[in-house]
Nucleic acid binder design. Structure first.
Length: 935
DNA sequence: GCAAGGTC
């Protein structure tokens, strides 16, 4: 059996179709892995890399003492399967195969993926011959030929790829751990470092520093208005920017009539058609359509999987010879682009345009089939598809041609110029609306004629700082510098923003992003520079050419990183302090209204709040919703009243919850509570806020003296205020308790959530759990609870109230639990039964029970129940235990009968009634007791 | 919990 292994499923599918010819291809899809069988051949696709490099076991713990970040430099590295299903399938076929052909992409990573497959197959089958097919286009001719002429894997080239994997892992992981640990970062806020991400971040930081350092200067632009044959025309001063105001003024003053035409020059310009699309150009084009880089790639991937466009991850800007242009164009003869296709057919260039980059693994991006608006589905995909179609058209269309006109004139002694342009041949511009070039038609001027000076202007302008990077501009820069690949550049940007290193589009660094970059620049500069990638690529070239070994390259790299760690560790304390101090700014939102020290967003577990950095001297704080609603993040917007940054809660997949100014919202929600005080008015609340009292509890804790002083009230007025605040606070506490109680005891149903039930209870006058425990379930039906639900709610409330009363009376929690479990949570019931019975029912000693009953009875102002000694109890109960089960003894003891003596004295009929025990049983027991007494 | 590179 011949096993052919491709890099991805779609290629496997096409290889099978090409090789099978007329034979039927049998397709088997098994979740993650598909394979194609015909004759005696199996073709299967991988999913790119199916293994990944990682450190050997033992290096997982970041804080391990034996394995600090530095130890990762020389840690052993292993390959771990990441796609177990595919690996399993490949080895299963590999065992049976008589020939294996690796048909992965024709590039360095493809060679490495091929070597991974090679090693996995070898492990399963040590003997089978394994060869390598290389094709530069996925066409029948190329594929058939490459498999027929298969050679062997290029292990040097694969080693080059491995060196990259290992260097990236070792540098990235060790530096990431070092910075994260040094700056005391948690698992969800690590400070990552990498060969590609760090230089990319540094570019954004650099641009921000340029913007900050920029000093604008003034300049002046001169222009004049004139006309010819009734057509208004504008002319610009030839000098361009005047940076000297006196010079500009002089030129302006010297601009006078007559205006004399000194030159009329007509020319011809070729406006070249654009080149075929690679990934970067696709992202740039998409960004003009308002689509982000990641989303554009996501939609392009989808279009590709559905067969509408070719493979979207490519660096190639030249169509392969095998692409039949006229056939591709014919696809669009009907459908949404038929008009444009007709135009292109009439304006076809002899050879399509080609860009500078040419690779062998994939063609440029072009449309592979016709689709209409409905088939495509969403708007963004359609816009992208249309762009790809039109771009393809443009690359096979003739160039546009312009007639240009330049008219020079003198206004007095000052030289001015007018430029115009007229399209002679629209060419590709006829079907490509994405880059517009405006025509500027000029009237016919003649040499030497004079024109009127209708107006003259001197515009004062300022030089502008360089612009922040847009996503697409950054991706272009990364490509120029060789950072990342076609498939990873957009992911790097997502990663930087996920790590909260950058924000916004155009992008700017956050405080954390900037602090990390500057620390790395100082102590590990290599990782922040694009040259690291350049050097790595040179070394990879050497390994591929066989002039250097992978081990030589790796040990050089490790040596360099060791030197960096020497430096980093020497400065560890300073780096940590610097990072922590600077990143704290990210949490600082402005001055505390009470003491003026910085207020910070704080987080403890899942609860978050805003607190004063002067704590514990200043205790000002305001609550925030728990982190399950989203992480609290500082926004740029600042409150005009309090000078505090606005705050929002961000949660994945949910729109941002804008809290706004935290103090404003704090005041707003507490004002409602203040207004529940009988004597409180809106102005009163403002007065309280003015002296930094924002909550009821703050009002109470001020104390009457200070309150009367700061508000100018008499002491009795202040006392009254505090009393009122106290009772409102108690009321609110009870309400919260009720809400909590309801939410844990009522199952929510549609149209009857917890908050609705609580609100209904409150409006019925049931304002707390205590009131609920006294309520008649029948009165609660308006709350939409069923009668059974209401009854059980009331019962639960009763039990809760009872338990809290017992606690209040001083019964310790552990014993109380035993009483409650035995059904004695009601204090009245608790003191009405005999301690002997309670002891049997709960297992608590009689002495303890007597003490507790005394406690409760005193609090209830009831006579103390009968007290018995432990000895008396034991002596009495021991003989009875021999004859009767505890089920029988407990009710008797609860009724006060716990010894043979008491039993004999009791009246059997009455006892049966009180305990619910069968009278005959009691009589039997009495006979036994009599015998015991006689002995 | 770490990188960058494949691919879905």
């Amino acid at each position: 059996m011949h096993l052919i292994i491709a890099e991805k499923n779609i290629v496997a599918e096409r290889i099978a179709a090409f090789l099978a010819g007329k034979a039927k291809v049998q397709v088997t899809r098994d979740g993650a892995a598909a394979h194609y069988v015909f004759d005696d051949t199996v073709v299967m696709g991988l999913r790119g890399h199916v293994v990944e490099v990682d450190f050997v076991e033992g290096y997982n713990n970041w804080r391990s003492v034996e394995h600090p970040p530095r130890s990762l430099i020389n840690a052993d590295i292993v390959k771990k399967p990441t796609e177990k299903k595919i690996v399993g399938l490949m080895q299963k076929f590999g065992k049976k195969a008589t020939r294996v052909t690796i048909a992965t992409d024709y590039d360095t990573e493809g060679e490495l993926i091929g070597k991974e497959a090679f090693e996995l197959i070898r492990a399963a089958n040590p003997k089978v011959p394994i060869d390598r097919a290389r094709f530069s286009a996925i066409t029948k001719d190329e594929i058939v030929k490459s498999i027929k002429e298969a050679t062997s894997l290029d292990f040097n080239l694969a080693s080059a790829g491995e060196s990259r994997q290992i260097i990236d892992l070792v540098w990235g992981a060790s530096l990431t751990r070092f910075l994260s640990i040094t700056a005391h970062r948690g698992a969800d806020s690590i400070l990552s470092v990498g060969r590609v991400q760090s230089p990319t971040l540094a570019m954004i930081v650099d641009r921000e520093r340029e913007i900050e350092a920029f000093v604008p200067t003034k300049y002046w632009m001169l222009s004049l208005a004139t006309e010819k044959s009734g057509i208004g025309v504008e002319a610009r001063h030839v000098h361009g920017r005047f940076t000297d105001s006196a010079e500009a003024k002089a030129a302006y003053d010297a601009t006078v009539e007559p205006l004399r035409v000194t030159d009329v020059i007509t020319g011809h310009k070729v406006d070249r058609a654009p080149t075929p699309l690679d990934t970067t150009a696709l992202i740039v084009g998409a960004s003009r359509l308002g689509i982000s880089a990641s989303y554009a790639m996501n939609r392009a991937e989808d279009l590709y999987m559905r067969g509408f466009i070719s493979y979207p991850r490519t660096d190639n800007t030249a169509y392969p010879k095998s692409l039949k242009i006229s056939e591709q164009l014919a696809i669009f003869a009907h459908g949404a682009f038929s008009k444009e296709a007709g135009y292109v057919k009439d304006h076809l260039r002899s050879v399509p345009t080609r860009g500078k980059k040419e690779t062998t693994d994939h063609p440029p991006i072009y449309p592979t089939s016709l689709a209409n608006r409905e088939e495509i589905g969403d708007d963004v995909s359609w816009k992208l598809y249309e762009f790809i179609v039109r771009r393809f058209f443009a690359t096979i269309c003739i160039d546009a041609e312009w007639e240009t006109m330049k008219v020079n004139l003198l206004a007095g002694s000052e030289p001015y110029t007018i430029t115009g342009g007229r399209i002679l041949e629209a060419g590709w511009r006829g079907i490509y609306p994405y880059s517009k070039a405006e025509e500027n038609l000029l009237p016919a001027f003649t040499l030497g004629e004079t024109l009127p000076l209708l107006a003259k202007t001197s515009d004062e302008k300022e030089t502008q700082p360089p612009a922040r990077y847009s996503q697409s501009r950054l991706i272009q820069r990364m490509e120029e510098l060789g950072l990342g690949t076609k498939s990873t550049r957009h992911e790097v940007i997502s990663k930087l923003s996920g790590r909260k290193y950058i924000e916004g589009n155009p992008m700017k660094p956050t405080i954390v992003g900037r602090a990390v970059t500057e620390s790395l620049e100082e102590f590990a500069g290599t990782i922040t520079e694009p040259t690291m990638t350049k050097t790595l690529e040179e070394h990879m070239g050497d390994i591929a050419a066989g002039t250097k070994t992978i081990n030589a390259v790796l040990s050089e790299s490790r040596k360099m990183l060791t030197g960096i760690f020497d430096d980093l560790e020497k400065n560890e304390a300073a780096i940590g302090r610097d990072l922590m101090e600077r990143t704290r700014e990210e949490q600082t939102i402005g001055p505390c209204p009470v003491c003026g020290k910085p207020l910070r967003i704080k987080r403890v577990g899942s609860s978050q709040f805003i607190g004063c950095s002067g704590y514990p001297d200043c205790t000002f704080n305001t609550g925030l919703p728990p982190a399950t609603w989203g992480n609290a993040i500082k926004m740029d917007e600042v409150c005009g009243i309090h000078g505090l940054n606005h705050v929002q809660l961000l949660r994945k997949g949910a729109p941002a919850w804008k809290i706004g100014c935290p103090l404003c919202s704090h005041i707003k929600s507490n004002t409602e509570s203040f207004l529940l005080m009988p004597g409180m008015t809106a102005e009163g609340v403002q007065k309280l806020n003015a002296v930094h009292i924002y909550t009821l509890s703050e009002l109470i804790s001020r104390g009457p003296e200070e309150l009367s002083k700061s508000l100018g009230l008499s002491k009795s007025e202040a006392e009254k205020l505090i009393r009122e605040a106290g009772s409102v606070l108690a009321l609110l506490k009870k309400r919260t308790e009720l809400k909590k109680f309801v939410s844990s005891h009522v199952a929510p149903k549609r149209g009857r959530g917890h908050s609705k039930v609580s609100a209904a209870l409150i409006s019925l006058g049931v304002v707390d759990v205590e009131a609920l425990s006294r309520a008649d379930p029948k009165d609660l039906l308006e709350t939409k609870l069923s009668e059974a639900e209401a009854a059980s709610l009331v019962a639960e409330a009763k039990s809760m109230v009872n338990i809290s009363r017992m606690k209040e009376y001083g019964v310790p929690a552990i014993t109380l639990k035993k009483y409650v479990n035995a059904g004695f949570d009601d204090p009245e019931k608790f003191i009405s039964v005999h301690p002997a019975g309670l002891s049997l029912a709960t297992g608590v000693s009689v002495t303890t029970i007597c003490n507790h009953q005394k406690l409760v009875a005193e609090k209830l102002c009831r006579p103390c129940p009968e007290k018995i000694s432990k000895a008396a109890f034991e002596e009495g109960i021991a003989p009875l235990r021999k004859k009767a089960e505890p089920e029988l003894l407990t009710p008797l003891a609860l009724a006060g009968v716990y010894s043979p003596d008491l039993l004999v004295k009791a009246d059997a009929k009455t006892l049966a009634k009180v305990t619910g025990i069968d009278e005959k049983q009691i009589v039997n027991l009495q006979k036994y007791a009599q015998k015991v007494l006689e002995k």
